[in-house]
Design a protein around this nucleic acid. Structure first.
Lengths: 299, 299
DNA sequence: ACAACTGATAAAAATTTTTTATTGACTTGC
DNA sequence: GCAAGTCAATAAAAAATTTTTATCAGTTGT
């Protein structure tokens, strides 16, 4: 009776499939099959109904799930109680909003590697919207994203709050501040991609009936947004903190518009599972790192 | 983090040595070393002090022990809750008093094998005295022995109660019954070995100041006792139930002496450990089997 | 000092687990 | 209804792991 098999079982149960669990656990599907088969053989009981599309738990399986989770929780507790700090090991799937990549992520990674050399990260950069889904689907262990998080299945911890500002190249012939919205709309507005807080806020801003049409360039790469803004293609709405260098050397400037932009409140979020010790540990480290300011992108 | 490693750890802790644990777990000493090393490496913590003769737990080790036991207990509970009856598997070390061997042990083994084909037995026949020690030292999982058991660490369940009687060959020129002790002492008294209830009882019986000297032949094999009695070497004090055949065909006979012999109350006993599910299961089966009478030795 | 213990260790053997590659059973979209 | 796609099962090979064998070095008790 292997803990690895039990863990696999829990993941298959949660994700509803062998294949998905295999991806999630960095293993191949036959390996997952083998582990579940071992468990079923040892217990002499069928744990999943594989008939339908989604592998569903049998009654016995459901029964086992509770025990398996208690078992894994107990293991976590045990490890926390007796393990040397720094002997924590494993792989954690981390989703990160791009703003974080450009502010303090590398410092966190460094510090993490120093304190917990046996912990591997699998970092995925995506929008908060996508990452929230992935957290709920247990495809991410932990994410740093724009809050607030309201899902009760997720635990969230505030990390940092960044101002969002209008930014343009000094070469752009902007009218005197505060720039009215109709003047702003003369240029494309370059910002985060669709399905993000800033994109939505700006879209809303220009959604009134008498508002000028606006060209909104959603972009999945912040570096590209910065590049395009530097090139004078348009104005952008991004957190100034990630372009501190460009601001100090005058290649970009923040300006006031008629309409203010919302702040971005970043939080760390992870599933409230019994064994999310590693996530919790990383979160507190992240909170610490996020509290100290940093340099941004330099292009 | 392997359950096998945790189980090994618990055994080493209980038995106070790698070698002893190796024997107990049917493994070699290097295998035990490897499992403990794995645990220590994963936790980044030393679990045993190996300096002195006896491997003793470190502080961390003591801390782990509690968790490990809870873990194993939870596993037992889990298996009990979801496993198909009959899928119980493992090796259990069973100590058996010889009287049991000659009455119902084989029926138990048969029935056990039928109901739980994956359970192996390692049967050791010894005196109740020795087996009690071995139970306390965790060298036996379960024993069927002469009760009562007073140790609080052990759980005991009554199994059967057998009369102990004076037995002789009909060819032996015994005086009219009840035979006085001084006449009895003319022959060697053949019975169980030293450190057994019957041996002690008889020794006591002849211990008064004015008692005749008695030749007490303690024998570790009941079959030998029966053989010697059949051969008219002396009288014996054994449970008639194991020689029912010899009694019916008249090759042996029970006779009354001046002094009655005590009954032998057999019980099943096992250590009160959190994961003694298998022992408990076997005990209830044994109680069932022991309740139905049986044939004895046939020589 | 020596015999009888202890556990550690290296190398070989055995076992278990994982992967690769393929299959058959089912959905699903057309 | 049929092709395409997805699911898990399976066999064989490869990889990783665990266990054994054999030996060592250190204590302990005589």
């Amino acid at each position: 009776m292997d803990l690895k098999a039990l863990e696999t079982f829990v993941w298959v149960a949660h994700l509803g499939g062998f294949r998905t669990a295999a991806d999630r656990l960095n293993a191949t599907q036959p390996a997952i099959s083998a582990r579940i088969a071992q468990l079923e053989e040892e217990l002499g009981v069928r744990l999943f109904d594989r008939e339908s599309r989604r592998a569903t738990l049998t009654e016995k399986g459901l029964n086992l799930l509770g025990y398996a989770e208690r078992m894994l929780a107990l293991r976590s507790e045990m490890v926390q109680a007796v393990a040397e700090k720094g002997s924590m090991r494993g792989i954690i799937r981390l989703g990160v909003a791009e703003s974080i990549v450009h502010t303090w992520l590398s410092r966190l990674v460094e510090r993490l590697h120093y304190l917990y050399p046996a912990v591997s990260l699998e970092i995925e950069v995506d929008t908060s919207f996508v990452m929230r889904e992935e957290l709920l689907a247990h495809q991410l262990d932990l994410a740093f994203l724009v809050g607030p998080i309201t899902e009760p299945q997720l635990k969230s911890v505030p990390l940092c709050s960044y101002e969002l500002a209008w930014v343009a190249s000094p070469s752009l012939p902007l009218p005197p501040e505060p720039v009215p919205l109709k003047d702003l709309a003369r240029w494309p507005i370059i910002t985060f991609s669709r399905n993000t807080r800033p994109y939505g806020a700006i879209q809303e801003m220009f959604s009134g009936g008498d508002m000028p049409a606006v060209r909104l360039f959603g972009n999945s790469s912040l570096a590209t947004v910065v590049r395009m803004t530097l090139d004078g293609i348009g104005v952008s709405a991004i957190p100034p903190v990630i372009i501190s260098r460009e601001l100090t050397d005058g290649r970009l400037k923040v300006f006031q518009a008629e309409e203010p932009l919302p702040r971005l409140d970043f939080v760390a979020a992870y599933a409230k599972k019994p064994d999310s010790l590693m996530a919790a540990t990383i979160v507190s480290l992240a909170a610490e790192v996020a509290a100290t300011p940093t340099a941004g992108i330099s292009l």
